[in-house]
Structures are given as C-alpha cells and as structure tokens.
Amino acid sequence: MTRTYLDYNATAPIRREARAAVIAAMEATGNPSSVHAEGRAARRIVEDVRGGVASLCGVAARCVTFASGATEAVNAALNPRFGVGPKESPIERLIVAAGEHPCALHGHRFPLSTVEMAPLCPDGRIDLDWLADACGRPGRALLALQGANNETGVVQPVSEAAAIVHAAGGLLFCDAVQLAGRVSFNAAALGADALALSAHKIGGPKGAGALVAANVDLSLGEPLIRGGGQERGARAGTESVASIAGFGAAIRACVADMAEEAPRLLALREHLADHVRGAAPDAVIFGESAPRLPNTLCFAVPGIEAATLMIALDLAGVAVSSGSACSSGKVTPSHVLAAMGVAPDLARGAIRVSVGWASTDRDAEHFAEAFSGAIRRMRAGRAAGAV
C-alpha cells in the first residue's frame, strides 16, 4: 500500500543531507572535549553547527547551547534564574500562553502559585490586552510564548508581546520549533530573549536541539543537567556529535530552500483545504482568520470524531494527527482549541495535516481520496443508524 505522510509538525522525514551528515560524523571517533586530533575533529563538527544555528537565529555562536531537543531546552530555560545576573531583580512570575506545548505548560521550575495562564483570543493568538494588564502587576515576569502553534499553525505576535513584557522589565522565551525552516526569523526581530529549536522538526535526526540566548546570559542560571561542564557549563554531558551534525545539515538545507518552499507549501496547504471543504462543506478550519504557518491545516468536521477519522485515514495509507504528538499517543480534546473557545464536541474532531520538504501534489490527491471516502462512509453509517 502506498503511504502518504502528512504529520511534519510531529516529525519531518530525515533529509538526505542530514542522514549523510549523521553517518559521516559517526566516523569522528574522538570525544569533542578531548584535546588530541580525534577530539579536535569532533569539536570542529560541533562548532561548525553551532555557527549555523547562530546564523539561523541572528546571534553569536557563543549564545547557542546544544540539548537533546526542544523539550530539554524549554525545561532548562523556564526557571526563576533565567538569565538573571547577581545584581538584577529575580524572576518572580511565569506567564505561559494557554496554547503552549506541554513542555512549557508542565516543564517549568516555578512554584505553581507564581504561574499565570495567558488566555488566547478566538483566532488562537495571545490576548495582548490581558498580557499588558498582567505585566503591570507586581513582580518581574517571564513570558513563555510559541512562535507558532504546533496544532493550529497560528503564528503568535511575539514581537508585540515582547515589547509589552520588556516595557515592564520582564523577559520573553520563545519556543521557535515550528518557525524554523518554515518562515524567516531571527531573535532580534522577534524580540525574544531566548529561543528553543529542534532538529527533527526540520528534517534532522531526533535527539538534537538547541537553547539559543539572545539578550540573556544563560550560564547565570542553574543548569538542568550538571556534570562535566560541557557547553560552557550550561549543559553537562558529552555532545551527541552525529545528531548535531545532522541538525546542521538540515538547517543548511532548509535555509537554502526556504524562499521556494514557503509558497509551495502554502499552495499545497490550500489545495488540501479545498479538498476538505469539497468533501465536507461544513468543516471548520481553526485559526483561519489569523496568520498561520504555510504548512499547517487544522480542521474538524462536525459530528466526526478525530480518533475514528484518523484510523480510517491510516488504514487508507494516510498519516495525520489530532494535535501534539507529545501527549503519549492519546487522542484527547486539544487544550489549544479549548483555550480558543472551541466547543468540546467540535474540538474532539480536530485533525491536523502538516506538510513539508518531501510533500507533493500526489500526497494531496491521496489525502483527498482517503478523506472523501472516509467522510462518505461515516456519514452513511450515521444516517443508517438514525433510521
């Protein structure tokens, strides 16, 4: 059976360049912390990629700390000592946008009594008026805000939020995982004090990511992983040279392709949306009135459960999801859609289709055939059951 993969926001297929870089780096025998020739060769691989990550984000190479992925990077950053110098006021409050990834919602190190949830507007973007009021309250705040939502693709007004937070003396941390490789960005334009990135979302290997500082010194905080002092003391443990090499190759590939890929993916997304509306005119596309990533379509068909539809599509050879892949494989109502005020019955039908570097028009046609057939059968079954 032909398989069509449309779940890039969970994990992108590994790029050929990244696979080749991983295999080549496995020949670098030395530990990158060793001073002999073999160690220096491994170190060169790591530092070359560090420069590539820095260039992607518009920061200096010394601002990049490698991690096992974005979840670790977020966990490391969301703590009361986030970039706080000895003469600075401590971070007393954490504000988390209600639609954030679970690693931000549950991975912080703040006392729960100091955590506030920033509401979303119906279009999926953070409520900036609420944020301005919250930042006016006592206590220096840290805001955790995604660059773009992993479920709906809604692009957040990060620079506007940063201006509000900074005016009140606070800091902003941005989960930029879904932005990378899909839209051009840099830390300065976003106004983010630090960013998190992930390799496997852009066609690199799983198990690599980065915490990128822009306006803060992350070495001032307490490292999440302590040990030998690697990564300038910010993250202990021998660097995964092969995974980092693949990360770098994926960055180079997606940056080189981005100017052509963004409009191609947007056209493909709209083609998929047309197929959805053609088979189910009553389908609701979430975040449609807000700026969205060019590759992401999140929708629901009233009366159709996501779990049932996902199984039908999978049996037909099409892989999609119902939202974040980081919820232990459970198909549960989306906290993102709940924060947008979507009715529970409709939210239970949410399907996410996300495309990427290897997606084609043929994939869209396969989806259209599988989706229209599934909807037709489900609605016929419901009609027969109602008789």
Rank of each mutant, 00 (worst) to 15 (best):
223 P>D: 08
206 K>S: 11
177 V>C: 04
239 E>I: 06
25 A>F: 00
7 D>I: 09
326 C>Y: 14
18 A>H: 07
285 I>D: 08
232 R>M: 11
352 R>G: 02
42 A>P: 01
175 D>N: 07
187 A>Y: 01
121 C>N: 14
85 G>A: 15
51 G>T: 07
232 R>S: 14
161 A>C: 07
236 A>P: 00
63 C>P: 02
376 R>Y: 06
209 G>H: 00
354 S>R: 01
320 V>R: 04
272 L>P: 02
155 V>M: 06
85 G>N: 11
106 H>P: 08
296 T>P: 06
61 A>K: 02
167 A>E: 14
38 E>Y: 09
66 F>A: 01
152 T>Y: 03
376 R>L: 08
110 F>W: 13
5 Y>G: 05
140 R>F: 10
1 M>L: 14
233 G>N: 05
58 G>M: 04
19 R>G: 07
333 P>C: 08
289 S>P: 09
129 D>V: 07
342 V>W: 00
176 A>H: 03
62 R>P: 07
68 S>Y: 07
229 G>S: 12
312 A>I: 09
161 A>Q: 02
102 P>Q: 11
142 L>Q: 02
10 A>G: 13
256 A>S: 14
12 A>Q: 05
96 V>L: 15
313 L>A: 07
298 C>M: 13
90 P>I: 12
65 T>R: 08
365 E>L: 04
381 G>S: 12
100 E>K: 12
8 Y>C: 01
217 D>L: 10
149 N>C: 13
279 A>N: 12
362 R>F: 02
136 G>W: 00
87 K>W: 11
258 M>T: 07
180 A>F: 05
133 D>R: 15
31 N>G: 11
284 V>R: 14
26 M>H: 14
161 A>Y: 00
145 L>C: 09
280 A>F: 01
79 N>T: 15
72 E>T: 06
91 I>F: 05
197 L>Q: 02
142 L>H: 03
99 G>D: 04
176 A>N: 03
243 S>R: 09
32 P>E: 05
356 G>K: 03
227 G>K: 05
386 A>L: 13
162 A>F: 02
328 S>W: 13
161 A>I: 00
251 I>V: 15
55 S>K: 11
31 N>A: 12
214 A>H: 05
318 V>K: 03
223 P>R: 06
100 E>L: 14
28 A>D: 04
228 G>N: 15
47 E>H: 11
